[in-house]
């Protein structure tokens, strides 16, 4: 037995007992971008028992400025983020069980991923998926920690089923867009600040120190030097369809699911085909080889026809790079993939 966790055990609210509890806990990390890599590294170094990391994307050069688990080699090889993250996290702490899932999360996948999970950490980049996480959290009574960033601004809130208002209560409307990393960029320090808040709250929950939870909605801007902290407990709505007295979990229904998504900071649209099943990328590559430049690794196929690049994964998902226009992206998708 080495003294890997000695300083954390010396911290009396955790102690030996908290450390042992932590080693038995399973965290579901939705997203392996800036917030996901930061939170995952802290929890793995802290000695959590298991982390399941889920992400649909692969590493690009524009990620390296803030997504702390990735290297130039990962970007050059277009490694799926969760594969690169797992590899680095296992170098950091081989005692933690890391499960990597290259998937685009829908309610169906969430229902399968949630088994045995003690906490969900939100490291996603859009509200569609956050509202799914919110409903799953309420349905299975599992806490989750919202976190988000754009430019130099960050926000976080810890949602406890039966206790706090849920995201649906707080938003009071379905977001229709706003500033994104695409339009406003993002700086790394604000990512680290949100990660610090999320991971501290996670450690409190995972070591059964619920009384220490912040219980307030916080936000900060590290460039304009503003910060806010609000007690939002009055927002808990007994008629909320996600957390109220007669919940219907509206965001888990098929009708509420998005089949296309504009990816934050990427000038990219994701198309998720309605037809399920594994794609034969070899055959598709051969078909496309006379039309443009085709590159492949064991996880994906990349097809470039200037000024656009389309990347297909085994599950049929396609990332259309070079546009944020969903209609144009669909047109390109059907033009090249039928």
């Amino acid at each position: 037995m080495n003294d890997r966790y000695s300083r954390q055990i010396l911290f009396s609210p955790i102690g030996q007992e908290g450390q042992e509890k932590l080693a038995e806990k399973h965290v579901l990390m939705i997203g392996a971008g800036a917030l996901g890599t930061g939170n995952a590294e802290i929890l793995v170094r802290s000695g959590v028992g298991k982390i399941t990391i889920v992400d649909r994307d692969y590493v690009e050069w524009s990620n390296l400025q803030r997504q702390q688990l990735y290297t130039e080699s990962d970007a050059n090889n277009r490694m799926p983020k969760v594969i690169a993250a797992k590899s680095r996290l296992e170098e950091i702490n081989q005692d933690v069980q890391i499960e990597a899932k290259i998937i685009d999360v829908t309610p169906l996948e969430m229902g399968q991923l949630i088994d045995g999970v003690d906490l969900i950490i939100d490291a996603t980049d859009n509200f569609d998926i956050r509202l799914i996480i919110n409903d799953i959290s309420q349905k299975y009574r599992i806490p989750w920690i919202y976190g988000a960033v754009v430019a130099s601004y960050g926000i976080s809130y810890t949602i406890l089923p039966n206790e706090t208002p849920c995201l649906h209560c707080l938003l009071q409307q379905v977001p229709m867009g706003g500033m994104t990393c695409d339009t406003a960029g993002v700086i790394s320090p604000v990512v680290q600040m949100v990660v610090a808040h999320q991971s501290a709250e996670a450690l409190k929950i995972l070591t059964d120190n619920q009384e220490a939870l912040r219980k307030r909605l916080i936000s900060f801007d590290l460039w304009t030097n503003q910060q806010a902290s609000i007690d939002v407990s009055t927002f808990k709505n007994t008629s909320c369809l996600s957390c109220g007295e007669a919940p219907t979990y509206p965001h888990l229904s098929y009708e509420s699911q998005t089949k296309t998504a504009v990816l934050c900071g990427r000038d990219t649209v994701q198309i998720r085909p309605t037809s399920a099943g594994k794609r034969d990328l070899q055959t598709i590559a051969a078909r496309l080889s006379n039309t443009g430049k085709v590159e492949q690794n064991s996880f994906l196929l990349s097809f470039t026809s200037e000024p656009h690049r389309l990347v297909m994964f085994h599950d049929g998902r396609v990332l259309v790079h070079g546009t944020s226009d969903v209609t144009e992206a669909k047109s390109l998708y059907y033009r090249y993939f039928g």
Binding site: A148, V150, P175, M179, I218
Partner: peptide, 10 residues
């Protein structure tokens, strides 16, 4: 006045 805006990036 405290203003907290919900944003989506991550």
């Amino acid at each position: 006045i405290e203003l907290v805006e919900f944003v989506g990036g991550g």
